[in-house]
Amino acid sequence: MALYQHYLGNVVSKPPCKMTNANMYGFFIEGQLKQIQAYLDSTLNTVEIENTHFKALSKYLMLTFTDIEKMVSTNPQYKDAGWSQETDIIIWVPVAKMVKHKVDQIYFYPAYIVVNNLYALLNGTLTWGFNKYFSNTFEMPAIGGEPDKFSLTVDAFKTFSADSTLKPHQIFELNMVEKGEAKSVSGVAEIIKEAIELISSSTESIFDFDWNAIKQSLHQLVSPEINQILFKQYPDGEAQDALYQAIIHSPSKVDKVHSAAIYTHKYQFNMQHLDSFPLDEMFGISTASQQPLLPFNVLFDFSQDAAIEIAKN
């Protein structure tokens, strides 16, 4: 394996990195298991691991809007280079790693990511393998603000045709339609436990999971880190074959929780189909309005360690 060459002027730094005052708002939106599983089969399950495959836990997906006040590399070579603000908007797929048809571990798979920071886009894509896209057109509240409106606009082709041009389109929005209360909770672990309860209560299930075993394994997911799994790949010069293709584990360690709350507010989620980003086809999210479940907010500091390769083709 050749040594990676860090060009002078290259924005790629080295992990780990630390994020301070990450203000995350989250919602659970409904997709369809068939499409979600097809997405896993076309990504994670293309990497062969003996007696192992990945299954979607539920039709529910977690959508988060996170404003990170300060992001900095803590690698000695880069720790004094400077810091930046970052905003991440992510659709997460709750995933079970199945070994010999039994649940081995639970992950959150950040399957669709939009960021507002080119350094974060390049570092996240090249080093960790996050599937990131760029946009700085979005709406979300600041720390302590009223969580009443969220939206994301991306440069995209609404329809693929010879006459189509790349231009901004709002892909989805969430609006508060009924104000409720904010119930304080102890932290990320309690929110994840509520999420697993929600997921396990789903009336639609195409898989037979031992939910007691899954709930008992929650410590793997939330303490002391949030387990993320990634599908990392790079194309050849014709974008036909993969020069590199692997499954990556990327743990996020929660360093400190400043505050956390679950809302009883009611929201309306609306999404439109874009041929560039067909979230309805990718995850089965309806273009009809829906009410997201388990809205929450957590303000915390976390660290992102180096990515760990689980397997590669």
Rank of each mutant, 00 (worst) to 15 (best):
H6M: 00
N10W: 09
V12S: 09
K14A: 00
P16L: 04
P16C: 04
N23Q: 03
Y25M: 04
F27Q: 04
E30Y: 00
E48Y: 13
K55A: 07
L57I: 00
S58E: 10
K59W: 00
Y60A: 04
L61W: 05
L63H: 00
D67V: 02
T74I: 15
N75C: 07
K79E: 15
A81W: 12
V93I: 15
P94C: 08
V95N: 08
A96D: 03
K100W: 01
H101Y: 14
H101S: 14
I106N: 09
F108K: 03
N116A: 04
L118Y: 03
L118A: 04
L121T: 01
G124Y: 06
F130I: 05
K132I: 00
K132T: 03
F138T: 01
F138Q: 05
E139D: 15
P141S: 09
E146I: 12
F150S: 00
T153S: 14
V154T: 07
V154C: 10
A156E: 03
F160A: 15
S161E: 08
T165D: 10
H169R: 07
Q170D: 06
Q170P: 06
E173I: 04
M176D: 05
K179H: 06
E181L: 15
S184I: 14
V185S: 01
G187L: 03
I191R: 08
I191W: 02
I191Q: 05
E194H: 08
A195S: 13
S201I: 04
S202M: 02
E204I: 12
S205P: 02
F209K: 11
D210E: 10
I214N: 09
K215S: 12
Q216T: 11
Q216Y: 05
L221F: 10
V222P: 04
Q233A: 12
G237P: 03
Y244H: 07
I247C: 11
S259N: 11
A261D: 07
T264W: 14
Y267W: 10
Q272R: 14
P278K: 11
I285T: 06
Q291N: 02
P295M: 02
I308N: 10
I308E: 15
E309D: 11
